[in-house]
Simulated scan of single mutants.
Amino acid sequence: MNKRFKIPFVLTLVAAALVGCSSNKPKVEKIKPNPLPKLVQAKTLQQVFSEHVSATNKNDPLRLQIAVDNGTLFFIDPKKDTVEAFQGNKRLWATRISKHETLSAGAVAGNGMVIVGNQKGQLFGLDEATGAVKWTSQLSGPIITPSYIQQGRVITVTNDGNVYAHDVSSGQQLWTYRLPTVALSLRGQAAPTQLDPNTVLIGTANAYVYGIDVVSGMPRLQRRVAVAEGSTDVQRLNDIDGDPVMMGQFMVTTSYQGQVTVTDLQQQQVVWSDNASSNKRPEVTQDAVYITTMDGKIIAYGLLTGEKLWENDQLLHRNLSNPVLLGSDLVVGDFDGALSLLDPSTGKIIGRSMTKGDVTSLRVVDNQLYVSTQKGALSVWQNR
């Protein structure tokens, strides 16, 4: 029987620190995060929405992202087991799914529906306008990452390595695809993303990216994008937990204890790869790739050349979020709720705003920044 063990990232750090220790009572030195650098005439962001939901386990942060569709915001409260809708600062509705406090995946919205999932493997489709639960489907494992809506299908990855497609309106299961499993991996999962109008990309714990036809469920692509080295299972962990990103024909991926890699899918070859450990989604433009590493570096590369354009190590060990571009600024969040603004051409920190709690997810939609934290602080920001 092939069992797949998911371990929180904090335990991975401890296990890695203990490898090779001969003492019966090894001491693990606590790494201190860098203090936030002092700024003169710092740029700030304007907060346009704020709401607070229940906190999640700090050792197992979930992607409680805010979904937005037609100007309406949707999000979950994982402890109250509710889905809420807001327009501006006005709550439109709040629907309690059950009494089990198991909602575990951030909302997605589209085609008039809001999709959420829970730790028991249940997928729910709610009406955007009323919050009424239109359908429920039982999947094979916990749902810890947001689904994706494409071509009228809801694409969902469960924590046991299955990919499902459901009709967004009726909830009818259309197909399922089994991903290869590994014996040991981080507790995390890349969310499905679009390769093209008919294909969805899935990053996995075995350092492969799979492209699956959203209509038929047939595989269209299989690429290994990272390699890890080491003598133990922990040292060989090589998960892709950050969502793959497409820029034209180029697919950009990051991996834990692996590499940042740019692959030309048209030519079916790697353009460049550089050793960098990251479990966050990269930010990509037509010219550059921006990543945050596990130890807190922010690095910019040339998209086509792989040349390192700059590296910022001022925020070491601050548990950085994924980087995003908001207008002319690059933004990263950290464990203390700081949203640092950087000049994307130089890597210089030029501003800061503050939220509350470990920033677990940043998204930019229609030039607005959507922020989620482990403490349940959900907020929307824009440039002043």
Rank of each mutant, 00 (worst) to 15 (best):
F5S: 12
K6I: 02
A16C: 10
S22N: 05
S23M: 11
K25H: 12
K32S: 14
V40I: 11
Q41V: 11
Q47G: 00
E51R: 09
S54R: 00
S54G: 07
T56P: 04
N57K: 02
L64R: 10
A67I: 01
L73M: 11
K79V: 01
D81T: 01
V83F: 00
V83A: 03
F86M: 06
K90S: 15
K90V: 12
R96K: 13
S98Y: 09
T102Q: 12
L103C: 00
A107G: 07
G110D: 12
N111K: 09
I115D: 00
N118Q: 08
N118A: 04
G121N: 06
L126M: 05
E128I: 02
G141L: 04
G141Y: 01
I143Y: 03
Y148K: 11
G152H: 13
R153V: 12
V157T: 15
Y164D: 01
D167W: 06
V168I: 06
Q173H: 05
T176Y: 01
Y177F: 08
V182E: 05
A183N: 08
L184D: 02
L186E: 09
A190T: 01
I202G: 12
N206T: 00
I212N: 11
V215Y: 04
G217A: 01
A226Q: 06
V227C: 02
V227P: 00
G230L: 08
T232Y: 03
Q235Y: 11
Q235G: 05
N238L: 04
I240Q: 12
D241R: 15
P244K: 06
G248D: 07
Y256E: 15
T263S: 09
D264C: 12
Q267F: 13
Q267K: 15
V270M: 15
V271M: 09
W272G: 00
D274C: 06
N275I: 04
A276H: 05
K280D: 12
K280M: 11
P282H: 10
E283A: 15
V284K: 14
V289H: 02
D295P: 00
K297E: 15
I299R: 11
W310E: 01
W310D: 00
D313H: 07
R318Q: 08
N322L: 08
D329L: 06
L341N: 02
L342E: 04
P344M: 03
T346F: 13
T346R: 13
G347L: 13
I349H: 05
G351F: 03
G351D: 03
R352N: 07
G357S: 05
G357P: 08
V365K: 13
Q368P: 01
Q374W: 04
K375L: 12
G376Y: 02
A377W: 14
Q382N: 03
